[in-house]
Simulated scan of single mutants.
Amino acid sequence: MYISFFNDFAREAIGTGIVLILLVLLRVITTKLVRRYARLSQTIERRTNLVIKYLHLLINILLIVALIIIWGVDAKDIIIAVSSIATVVGVAMVAQWSILSNITSGIILFFSYPFKIGDTIHIHDKDFPVIAEIEDISAFYISMVNKDGERIIYPNNLLLQKGVSIINTDLEPTDFTD
């Protein structure tokens, strides 16, 4: 029974084995590269783990597509499945655009590293200007504390849309207010 299966699907089985080996190698390599980058830029471990998780998810999706191709799933069936998934994801994206844009912004902030925890920043927002010290940077938002001790949670996607000044930490934020 097993010999018959292997004879019938030898190419697919070997291809699957190669894809699984590639999965392990890509995950190890991306993890090491992101950790090295994080160490050089002195990024927090929690942010590093979050980016690694996103990259692993992307690798897993690509390798699932590779397995589908290797096992010869009919293109017509793939198109039907992808269009169904795209419809569901499209509706979810409209409903959850803010969450997805915050995650994307969090990844951009991780790699561009414009500011770090402990920096005092000024967000140039006409309606709600903010001058505060960064306490935490997560996937969805930045947590800050202003001079009055008020905690401010600012979404990552809005942070990338606004002008931000990094204020010299030797100076008091009140030196820059009107």
Results as ranks from 00 to 15, higher is better:
75 A>Q: 13
89 V>L: 11
56 H>L: 03
7 N>D: 15
95 A>H: 03
94 V>W: 13
131 I>M: 12
135 E>L: 11
3 I>N: 11
166 I>N: 12
15 G>H: 07
143 S>R: 15
105 S>C: 09
162 K>S: 14
26 L>D: 07
53 K>L: 14
54 Y>S: 14
68 I>Q: 11
68 I>Y: 06
143 S>V: 14
9 F>D: 09
55 L>W: 09
138 S>K: 05
144 M>Y: 00
158 L>H: 07
59 I>V: 12
136 D>P: 01
159 L>W: 00
175 D>L: 14
9 F>E: 04
100 L>G: 13
128 F>I: 01
76 K>G: 02
94 V>D: 03
101 S>K: 15
173 P>F: 04
77 D>W: 14
131 I>G: 06
74 D>M: 05
172 E>P: 11
68 I>V: 15
107 I>P: 03
123 I>Q: 00
146 N>K: 10
51 V>Q: 01
18 I>T: 08
130 V>D: 06
28 V>S: 10
161 Q>M: 15
28 V>G: 06
178 D>L: 03
61 I>N: 02
66 A>S: 08
88 V>N: 09
11 R>Y: 11
115 F>V: 02
50 L>V: 09
98 S>M: 10
172 E>D: 15
9 F>V: 02
120 T>S: 12
144 M>E: 02
125 D>I: 09
21 I>P: 08
51 V>C: 02
19 V>L: 14
20 L>T: 10
139 A>V: 01
167 I>Y: 01
85 I>E: 13
150 E>H: 12
92 A>T: 12
142 I>E: 01
70 I>M: 04
115 F>W: 03
118 G>M: 07
64 I>P: 04
128 F>G: 10
120 T>H: 13
162 K>P: 12
168 N>H: 05
39 R>Y: 10
120 T>Y: 13
176 F>M: 09
141 Y>S: 14
5 F>D: 09
94 V>Y: 14
40 L>I: 07
79 I>L: 15
137 I>P: 04
46 R>T: 10
31 T>L: 00
1 M>H: 12
154 Y>N: 06
92 A>I: 15
42 Q>K: 11
61 I>E: 03
95 A>N: 08
169 T>M: 07
87 T>S: 12
151 R>W: 07
54 Y>D: 09
37 Y>M: 02
40 L>N: 11
83 S>N: 06
144 M>P: 00
140 F>D: 01
106 G>F: 01
166 I>H: 06
10 A>E: 12
17 G>V: 08
80 I>S: 07
163 G>E: 13
31 T>A: 03
133 E>Y: 07
83 S>P: 02
142 I>F: 01
1 M>T: 15
125 D>N: 14
80 I>C: 02
19 V>W: 06
93 M>S: 14
152 I>K: 10
118 G>W: 05
156 N>M: 08
46 R>M: 05
51 V>H: 00
167 I>F: 04
46 R>S: 09
93 M>I: 07
58 L>N: 12
128 F>N: 11
75 A>F: 13
7 N>F: 14
48 T>P: 08
136 D>N: 05
72 G>L: 04
26 L>F: 09
58 L>K: 10
